Amino acid sequence: MAELTKKGIGGFLARQGILVAFVIFMVGFALANQRFLAMDNIFGVIRSSAILGVMALGVTFVVIGGNLDLSVGSMMSFSTIVVLDLHDKIGPTLAIPAMFGLTLLLGAFIGFLVGYLKLNSLIVTLGMLSAIHGLTLTWSGGKNMDIADKQGTWFSIFGQGDIVGIPMPIIIFGLLALVLGLILSKTPFGRKIYAVGGNGQAATFSGIPRARVVFFTYLVSAFCVATAGLLQASRSLGSQNTVGQGYELEVLAMVILGGASLLGGSGTILKTLIGVLIFGFIENGLLLVGLEFYVQDIVVWAVIILAVWLDIAAKRGRLWSPIA
Protein backbone atom coordinates (compact mmCIF):
# COMPACT_ATOMS: atom_id res chain seq x y z
CA MET A 1 0.00 0.00 0.00
CA ALA A 2 2.82 2.36 0.89
CA GLU A 3 4.59 1.49 -2.35
CA LEU A 4 1.42 2.16 -4.32
CA THR A 5 0.99 5.52 -2.61
CA LYS A 6 4.60 6.36 -3.31
CA LYS A 7 4.18 5.51 -7.00
CA GLY A 8 0.94 7.49 -7.12
CA ILE A 9 2.57 10.61 -5.71
CA GLY A 10 5.58 10.17 -7.97
CA GLY A 11 3.34 9.67 -11.00
CA PHE A 12 1.29 12.75 -10.14
CA LEU A 13 4.40 14.90 -9.72
CA ALA A 14 5.79 13.53 -12.98
CA ARG A 15 2.63 14.64 -14.80
CA GLN A 16 1.74 17.83 -12.91
CA GLY A 17 4.94 18.72 -11.05
CA ILE A 18 5.59 21.88 -13.03
CA LEU A 19 2.11 23.21 -12.17
CA VAL A 20 2.70 22.44 -8.50
CA ALA A 21 6.00 24.33 -8.69
CA PHE A 22 4.23 27.22 -10.44
CA VAL A 23 1.62 27.50 -7.68
CA ILE A 24 4.40 27.54 -5.07
CA PHE A 25 6.22 30.26 -7.02
CA MET A 26 3.03 32.35 -7.38
CA VAL A 27 2.23 32.15 -3.66
CA GLY A 28 5.81 32.98 -2.71
CA PHE A 29 6.02 35.98 -5.06
CA ALA A 30 2.61 37.27 -3.92
CA LEU A 31 3.73 37.16 -0.30
CA ALA A 32 7.05 38.80 -1.14
CA ASN A 33 5.58 41.68 -3.14
CA GLN A 34 1.99 42.94 -3.08
CA ARG A 35 2.24 44.32 -6.62
CA PHE A 36 2.69 40.85 -8.06
CA LEU A 37 -1.06 40.10 -8.29
CA ALA A 38 -2.09 43.66 -9.23
CA MET A 39 -4.09 43.81 -12.48
CA ASP A 40 -1.67 46.22 -14.15
CA ASN A 41 1.21 43.86 -13.40
CA ILE A 42 -0.72 40.82 -14.67
CA PHE A 43 -1.58 42.64 -17.92
CA GLY A 44 2.02 43.76 -18.19
CA VAL A 45 3.32 40.20 -17.84
CA ILE A 46 0.93 38.84 -20.47
CA ARG A 47 1.76 41.67 -22.85
CA SER A 48 5.51 41.24 -22.45
CA SER A 49 5.11 37.47 -22.90
CA ALA A 50 3.02 37.80 -26.05
CA ILE A 51 5.92 37.97 -28.51
CA LEU A 52 7.63 34.85 -27.18
CA GLY A 53 4.21 33.28 -26.72
CA VAL A 54 3.33 33.74 -30.39
CA MET A 55 6.58 32.02 -31.35
CA ALA A 56 5.86 29.21 -28.88
CA LEU A 57 2.53 28.51 -30.60
CA GLY A 58 4.32 27.71 -33.85
CA VAL A 59 7.07 25.69 -32.19
CA THR A 60 4.33 23.61 -30.52
CA PHE A 61 3.33 22.31 -33.96
CA VAL A 62 6.93 21.39 -34.75
CA VAL A 63 7.55 19.65 -31.42
CA ILE A 64 4.30 17.65 -31.54
CA GLY A 65 5.37 16.55 -35.01
CA GLY A 66 8.51 15.05 -33.47
CA ASN A 67 11.04 17.72 -34.44
CA LEU A 68 12.81 20.81 -33.07
CA ASP A 69 13.18 24.37 -34.32
CA LEU A 70 16.17 26.22 -32.92
CA SER A 71 16.15 28.82 -35.68
CA VAL A 72 13.18 30.86 -34.40
CA GLY A 73 15.31 33.38 -32.50
CA SER A 74 17.48 34.39 -35.45
CA MET A 75 14.47 34.18 -37.79
CA MET A 76 12.61 36.61 -35.54
CA SER A 77 15.57 39.02 -35.73
CA PHE A 78 15.46 38.71 -39.52
CA SER A 79 11.71 39.39 -39.67
CA THR A 80 12.00 42.44 -37.42
CA ILE A 81 14.90 43.98 -39.33
CA VAL A 82 13.32 43.30 -42.73
CA VAL A 83 9.95 44.88 -41.93
CA LEU A 84 11.61 47.94 -40.36
CA ASP A 85 13.91 48.40 -43.35
CA LEU A 86 11.15 47.95 -45.92
CA HIS A 87 8.81 50.24 -43.97
CA ASP A 88 10.72 53.34 -45.05
CA LYS A 89 11.50 52.04 -48.55
CA ILE A 90 8.13 50.77 -49.79
CA GLY A 91 5.74 51.68 -46.95
CA PRO A 92 4.17 49.49 -44.26
CA THR A 93 1.31 48.29 -46.52
CA LEU A 94 3.76 46.43 -48.74
CA ALA A 95 6.49 45.86 -46.15
CA ILE A 96 4.36 43.61 -43.94
CA PRO A 97 3.36 41.04 -46.62
CA ALA A 98 6.88 41.14 -48.07
CA MET A 99 8.36 40.31 -44.67
CA PHE A 100 5.87 37.48 -44.14
CA GLY A 101 6.70 36.09 -47.58
CA LEU A 102 10.46 36.08 -46.98
CA THR A 103 10.07 34.51 -43.53
CA LEU A 104 7.79 31.80 -44.93
CA LEU A 105 10.43 31.06 -47.57
CA LEU A 106 12.95 30.41 -44.80
CA GLY A 107 10.45 28.16 -43.03
CA ALA A 108 9.73 26.32 -46.27
CA PHE A 109 13.46 25.72 -46.81
CA ILE A 110 13.83 24.26 -43.31
CA GLY A 111 10.68 22.19 -43.79
CA PHE A 112 12.05 20.84 -47.06
CA LEU A 113 15.36 19.81 -45.47
CA VAL A 114 13.72 18.14 -42.46
CA GLY A 115 10.56 16.83 -44.09
CA TYR A 116 11.51 15.76 -47.59
CA LEU A 117 15.26 15.21 -47.27
CA LYS A 118 14.72 13.74 -43.76
CA LEU A 119 17.71 15.52 -42.23
CA ASN A 120 17.99 15.76 -38.45
CA SER A 121 15.95 18.74 -37.27
CA LEU A 122 18.37 19.62 -34.47
CA ILE A 123 21.33 19.85 -36.87
CA VAL A 124 19.37 21.65 -39.59
CA THR A 125 17.83 24.32 -37.37
CA LEU A 126 21.03 24.81 -35.38
CA GLY A 127 22.82 25.46 -38.66
CA MET A 128 20.02 27.73 -39.86
CA LEU A 129 20.30 29.70 -36.62
CA SER A 130 23.77 30.84 -37.68
CA ALA A 131 22.89 31.15 -41.36
CA ILE A 132 19.84 33.36 -40.75
CA HIS A 133 21.82 35.48 -38.30
CA GLY A 134 24.38 36.05 -41.05
CA LEU A 135 21.57 36.85 -43.48
CA THR A 136 20.17 39.42 -41.04
CA LEU A 137 23.57 41.12 -40.65
CA THR A 138 24.00 41.13 -44.42
CA TRP A 139 20.58 42.68 -44.97
CA SER A 140 21.16 45.39 -42.36
CA GLY A 141 24.81 45.96 -43.18
CA GLY A 142 25.58 45.18 -39.56
CA LYS A 143 23.55 48.19 -38.41
CA ASN A 144 20.45 48.49 -36.25
CA MET A 145 17.18 49.63 -37.82
CA ASP A 146 14.88 52.53 -36.96
CA ILE A 147 11.80 53.98 -38.63
CA ALA A 148 12.49 57.54 -39.75
CA ASP A 149 9.06 59.03 -39.05
CA LYS A 150 7.91 57.37 -35.83
CA GLN A 151 5.12 59.86 -35.20
CA GLY A 152 3.48 59.71 -38.61
CA THR A 153 3.05 55.96 -39.14
CA TRP A 154 0.09 53.70 -38.40
CA PHE A 155 2.51 50.78 -38.15
CA SER A 156 2.73 51.17 -34.36
CA ILE A 157 -0.84 49.96 -33.90
CA PHE A 158 0.20 46.30 -33.74
CA GLY A 159 2.61 46.69 -30.84
CA GLN A 160 1.33 49.83 -29.10
CA GLY A 161 -2.40 49.99 -29.84
CA ASP A 162 -5.31 48.58 -27.87
CA ILE A 163 -8.98 47.68 -28.24
CA VAL A 164 -11.29 48.55 -25.31
CA GLY A 165 -8.23 48.76 -23.10
CA ILE A 166 -6.77 45.40 -24.08
CA PRO A 167 -3.30 45.74 -25.65
CA MET A 168 -3.10 44.62 -29.29
CA PRO A 169 -0.25 42.13 -28.64
CA ILE A 170 -2.50 40.27 -26.19
CA ILE A 171 -5.41 40.29 -28.68
CA ILE A 172 -3.24 39.01 -31.53
CA PHE A 173 -1.68 36.38 -29.26
CA GLY A 174 -5.11 35.23 -28.09
CA LEU A 175 -6.68 35.09 -31.56
CA LEU A 176 -3.72 33.23 -33.01
CA ALA A 177 -3.81 30.75 -30.12
CA LEU A 178 -7.54 30.19 -30.70
CA VAL A 179 -7.14 29.56 -34.44
CA LEU A 180 -4.09 27.31 -34.10
CA GLY A 181 -5.69 25.46 -31.19
CA LEU A 182 -8.73 24.66 -33.34
CA ILE A 183 -6.51 23.56 -36.24
CA LEU A 184 -4.50 21.27 -33.99
CA SER A 185 -7.45 19.71 -32.16
CA LYS A 186 -10.31 19.78 -34.66
CA THR A 187 -8.87 19.23 -38.14
CA PRO A 188 -7.45 16.22 -40.03
CA PHE A 189 -4.15 18.11 -40.36
CA GLY A 190 -3.89 18.37 -36.58
CA ARG A 191 -4.54 14.66 -36.13
CA LYS A 192 -1.88 13.89 -38.74
CA ILE A 193 0.68 15.94 -36.80
CA TYR A 194 0.00 13.88 -33.66
CA ALA A 195 0.25 10.66 -35.68
CA VAL A 196 3.55 11.64 -37.31
CA GLY A 197 5.05 12.75 -34.00
CA GLY A 198 3.81 9.70 -32.12
CA ASN A 199 5.05 7.10 -34.60
CA GLY A 200 6.28 8.39 -37.93
CA GLN A 201 6.80 4.98 -39.48
CA ALA A 202 3.33 3.80 -38.56
CA ALA A 203 1.88 7.06 -39.88
CA THR A 204 3.61 6.51 -43.22
CA PHE A 205 2.25 2.95 -43.45
CA SER A 206 -1.21 4.35 -42.70
CA GLY A 207 -1.01 6.56 -45.77
CA ILE A 208 -0.23 9.85 -44.03
CA PRO A 209 2.15 12.01 -46.12
CA ARG A 210 4.76 12.35 -43.40
CA ALA A 211 7.10 14.65 -45.31
CA ARG A 212 4.29 17.04 -46.22
CA VAL A 213 3.02 17.19 -42.64
CA VAL A 214 6.49 18.01 -41.28
CA PHE A 215 6.96 20.60 -44.03
CA PHE A 216 3.77 22.42 -43.07
CA THR A 217 4.60 22.40 -39.34
CA TYR A 218 7.66 24.48 -40.17
CA LEU A 219 5.53 26.82 -42.27
CA VAL A 220 3.23 27.33 -39.27
CA SER A 221 6.27 28.02 -37.10
CA ALA A 222 7.64 30.53 -39.63
CA PHE A 223 4.27 32.32 -39.81
CA CYS A 224 4.23 32.68 -36.03
CA VAL A 225 7.81 33.97 -36.03
CA ALA A 226 6.88 36.56 -38.67
CA THR A 227 3.94 37.65 -36.49
CA ALA A 228 6.28 37.96 -33.50
CA GLY A 229 8.69 40.02 -35.61
CA LEU A 230 5.83 42.32 -36.62
CA LEU A 231 4.84 42.82 -32.98
CA GLN A 232 8.44 43.50 -31.94
CA ALA A 233 9.06 46.00 -34.73
CA SER A 234 5.74 47.74 -34.17
CA ARG A 235 6.26 48.01 -30.43
CA SER A 236 9.67 49.69 -30.56
CA LEU A 237 9.67 51.13 -34.15
CA GLY A 238 13.34 50.23 -34.15
CA SER A 239 15.48 47.24 -33.30
CA GLN A 240 18.93 45.80 -32.87
CA ASN A 241 19.80 43.15 -35.44
CA THR A 242 20.23 40.60 -32.64
CA VAL A 243 16.86 41.23 -30.97
CA GLY A 244 15.84 37.55 -31.09
CA GLN A 245 19.17 36.11 -29.96
CA GLY A 246 18.64 33.42 -27.31
CA TYR A 247 14.86 33.34 -27.73
CA GLU A 248 14.94 29.83 -29.18
CA LEU A 249 15.76 28.25 -25.80
CA GLU A 250 13.17 30.31 -23.95
CA VAL A 251 10.48 29.42 -26.50
CA LEU A 252 11.36 25.73 -26.34
CA ALA A 253 11.26 25.86 -22.54
CA MET A 254 7.76 27.37 -22.68
CA VAL A 255 6.53 24.62 -24.98
CA ILE A 256 8.01 21.84 -22.85
CA LEU A 257 6.74 23.48 -19.67
CA GLY A 258 3.28 23.29 -21.22
CA GLY A 259 3.54 19.53 -21.48
CA ALA A 260 4.62 18.97 -25.08
CA SER A 261 7.00 16.02 -25.25
CA LEU A 262 10.42 16.31 -26.86
CA LEU A 263 9.74 12.82 -28.19
CA GLY A 264 6.76 14.12 -30.17
CA GLY A 265 3.12 13.10 -30.34
CA SER A 266 1.80 15.03 -27.33
CA GLY A 267 0.99 18.59 -26.35
CA THR A 268 -1.73 21.19 -26.90
CA ILE A 269 -1.95 24.91 -27.61
CA LEU A 270 -3.77 25.44 -24.31
CA LYS A 271 -0.95 23.82 -22.36
CA THR A 272 1.58 25.89 -24.27
CA LEU A 273 -0.33 28.99 -23.17
CA ILE A 274 0.05 27.78 -19.59
CA GLY A 275 3.77 27.24 -20.16
CA VAL A 276 4.12 30.79 -21.52
CA LEU A 277 2.36 32.23 -18.47
CA ILE A 278 4.43 30.13 -16.08
CA PHE A 279 7.62 31.40 -17.66
CA GLY A 280 6.43 35.02 -17.78
CA PHE A 281 5.22 35.18 -14.18
CA ILE A 282 8.35 33.49 -12.83
CA GLU A 283 10.59 36.03 -14.58
CA ASN A 284 8.39 38.90 -13.39
CA GLY A 285 8.35 37.59 -9.84
CA LEU A 286 12.12 37.33 -9.74
CA LEU A 287 12.42 40.98 -10.74
CA LEU A 288 9.82 42.14 -8.23
CA VAL A 289 11.59 40.42 -5.34
CA GLY A 290 14.77 42.30 -6.25
CA LEU A 291 16.87 39.69 -8.09
CA GLU A 292 18.97 41.03 -10.96
CA PHE A 293 17.94 40.29 -14.55
CA TYR A 294 20.94 38.05 -15.16
CA VAL A 295 19.66 35.66 -12.50
CA GLN A 296 16.93 34.85 -15.01
CA ASP A 297 19.51 33.05 -17.16
CA ILE A 298 20.16 30.64 -14.31
CA VAL A 299 16.43 30.18 -13.79
CA VAL A 300 15.94 29.48 -17.51
CA TRP A 301 18.57 26.75 -17.32
CA ALA A 302 17.00 25.24 -14.20
CA VAL A 303 13.49 25.38 -15.68
CA ILE A 304 14.62 23.67 -18.91
CA ILE A 305 16.31 20.88 -16.95
CA LEU A 306 13.23 20.48 -14.74
CA ALA A 307 10.89 20.44 -17.74
CA VAL A 308 12.92 17.79 -19.59
CA TRP A 309 13.16 15.67 -16.44
CA LEU A 310 9.40 15.83 -15.87
CA ASP A 311 8.78 15.08 -19.56
CA ILE A 312 10.83 11.87 -19.34
CA ALA A 313 9.33 11.04 -15.94
CA ALA A 314 5.80 11.40 -17.32
CA LYS A 315 6.62 8.84 -20.01
CA ARG A 316 7.76 6.21 -17.51
CA GLY A 317 5.23 7.13 -14.79
CA ARG A 318 7.74 7.92 -12.04
CA LEU A 319 10.18 10.66 -11.16
CA TRP A 320 13.25 8.46 -11.29
CA SER A 321 14.16 5.04 -12.54
CA PRO A 322 15.68 2.37 -10.30
CA ILE A 323 17.80 1.29 -13.27
CA ALA A 324 21.05 3.25 -13.53
Rank of each mutant, 00 (worst) to 15 (best):
M1S: 15
M1P: 10
E3G: 11
L4A: 14
T5W: 08
T5E: 15
G11V: 08
A14C: 12
F22Q: 10
F25I: 04
M26H: 10
F29M: 10
L31K: 13
N33V: 10
Q34W: 11
L37T: 14
D40S: 07
D40Q: 07
V45G: 01
S48Y: 06
S49N: 14
S49K: 09
A50G: 00
A50R: 00
M55L: 04
V63Y: 02
S71C: 03
F78I: 04
T80S: 11
V82C: 15
I90T: 14
L94H: 09
M99W: 06
F100Y: 12
T103F: 01
A108T: 06
A108G: 03
F109K: 03
F109N: 02
F109S: 15
G111S: 14
F112E: 04
S121K: 02
S121V: 01
I123R: 05
G127P: 13
A131L: 10
G134L: 07
L135F: 14
L135Y: 04
T136N: 08
T138R: 14
G142N: 11
K143Y: 13
I147F: 01
A148P: 03
K150W: 05
K150S: 15
S156P: 13
I157N: 04
I157K: 06
G159V: 13
G159L: 11
I163V: 15
V164P: 02
G165Q: 06
P167D: 05
P169T: 04
I170W: 05
I171A: 04
G174A: 09
G174S: 12
L175W: 03
A177C: 09
L180F: 10
T187Q: 11
P188V: 02
F189A: 05
G190A: 01
R191N: 06
Y194I: 00
N199G: 00
A202Q: 00
A202F: 00
F205D: 02
F205R: 05
G207E: 05
G207N: 07
I208C: 04
P209V: 00
V214C: 01
T217Y: 11
L219T: 12
C224E: 01
A228S: 03
A228I: 00
G229N: 02
G229D: 02
L231S: 08
Q232V: 03
A233R: 02
S236C: 06
G238Q: 12
G238P: 06
G238I: 11
S239M: 09
Q240A: 09
G246A: 10
L249G: 05
V251A: 12
V255K: 10
I256R: 11
G259Y: 10
S261G: 02
L263K: 07
G267V: 12
I269T: 09
L270W: 15
T272A: 06
I274A: 14
G275P: 02
F279V: 12
G285C: 13
L286C: 15
L288T: 08
L288Q: 12
V289D: 02
E292S: 14
E292W: 02
F293Y: 12
D297W: 06
D297R: 11
I298S: 09
I298G: 14
V299T: 06
W301M: 13
I305Q: 05
L306K: 07
V308Q: 12
V308P: 07
W309Q: 07
D311A: 08
A313N: 05
A313E: 11
A313D: 12
A314W: 01
R316V: 09
R318K: 12
W320T: 15
A324W: 11
A324N: 12
